[in-house]
């Protein structure tokens, strides 16, 4: 059943034109930021550094992932098909897992398509043999983890907030808080030298940065899996108990 649901989600996304729009916008923005705009392009930067690429994408995904993920549940509300799924005895946990993987496929595709920028940076490098391949693989894993968490958070928000615009704003806000807001809170003077160490470990950016540096700890893997599972469970609880 899950395979059929995942297939439907992926097909839905690419058949309504929104998928192509989202990917197209991201590719154009990536090109402008990394090669055209002053102060952010590689050519002015003068250094073949992959960090710029990954920093750019981690923030761009903050808007892009909630933008396409809100549609997954919003369309079910709009067409009334949540009632159809209920009448087909589809458990919402399975439906949400399908939507999650549907969204993840978009993130993966975007990262694959835009990796051409990294290839160009590699070619521009004077010392390509020193290009940090292991860090790049780690950064990619970090970005996939960030994207996966954003998808799960947005699904959770849209399960509770049916109004699409409100769900999008709340999702972006919550994704920001979890990505970097927690880290900023840990920097507050009141936590300095005490709780800041522990608070920072609840931020997504901390774990993504760790992986980006090539350090894959079990705690980071548990963090990503726990956050995603918890968000999907909360969303499923809401949708399974909701009257349609």
């Amino acid at each position: 059943m899950i395979a059929a649901l995942i297939k439907k989600e992926i097909k839905d996304f690419w058949s309504n034109g929104f998928g192509l729009l989202a990917v197209g916008v991201l590719i154009v923005l990536a090109f402008l930021f990394l090669w055209v705009f002053q102060d952010s392009n590689y050519l002015s930067y003068g250094l073949a550094d992959s960090a710029l690429y990954f920093q750019f994408f981690s923030y761009l995904m903050l808007f892009l992932v909630p933008a396409f993920t809100v549609g997954f549940l919003a369309n079910e509300y709009r067409f009334g098909t949540e009632e159809l799924l209920r009448s087909l005895q589809v458990d919402w946990t399975k439906a949400l897992i399908a939507k999650f993987f549907g969204g993840l496929s978009v993130v993966l595709l975007v990262l694959i398509l835009t990796s051409v920028h990294l290839f160009v940076v590699y070619q521009l490098s004077i010392t390509p043999q020193e290009f940090p391949i292991s860090q790049i693989i780690g950064s990619y894993l970090g970005l996939i983890g960030i994207g996966a968490c954003y998808i799960a958070i947005t699904l959770c928000i849209t399960a509770y907030v049916q109004q699409t615009a409100a769900a999008f704003i709340l999702s972006v806000a919550l994704c920001f808080m979890i990505y970097t807001g927690i880290s900023l809170i840990s920097d507050l003077a009141m936590f300095y030298g005490g709780l800041d160490f522990w608070i920072e470990r609840f931020s997504l950016s901390y774990h993504a940065d760790q992986i980006g540096r090539g350090i894959l700890r079990l705690s980071s893997v548990i963090y990503f899996i726990a956050l995603i599972t918890w968000c999907i469970w909360l969303a499923a609880y809401r949708l399974n108990t909701k009257e349609v």
Binding site: K8, D12, S15, N16, F79, G80, T81, E82, E83, L84, S87, Q89
Partner: peptide
């Protein structure tokens, strides 16, 4: 048993695409 019930709601929700 819910598996043995076919239900069509007033809105008749379908996936239009």
């Amino acid at each position: 048993d819910g598996d043995r019930v076919g239900y069509m709601s007033e809105r008749n929700p379908l996936y239009p695409h």
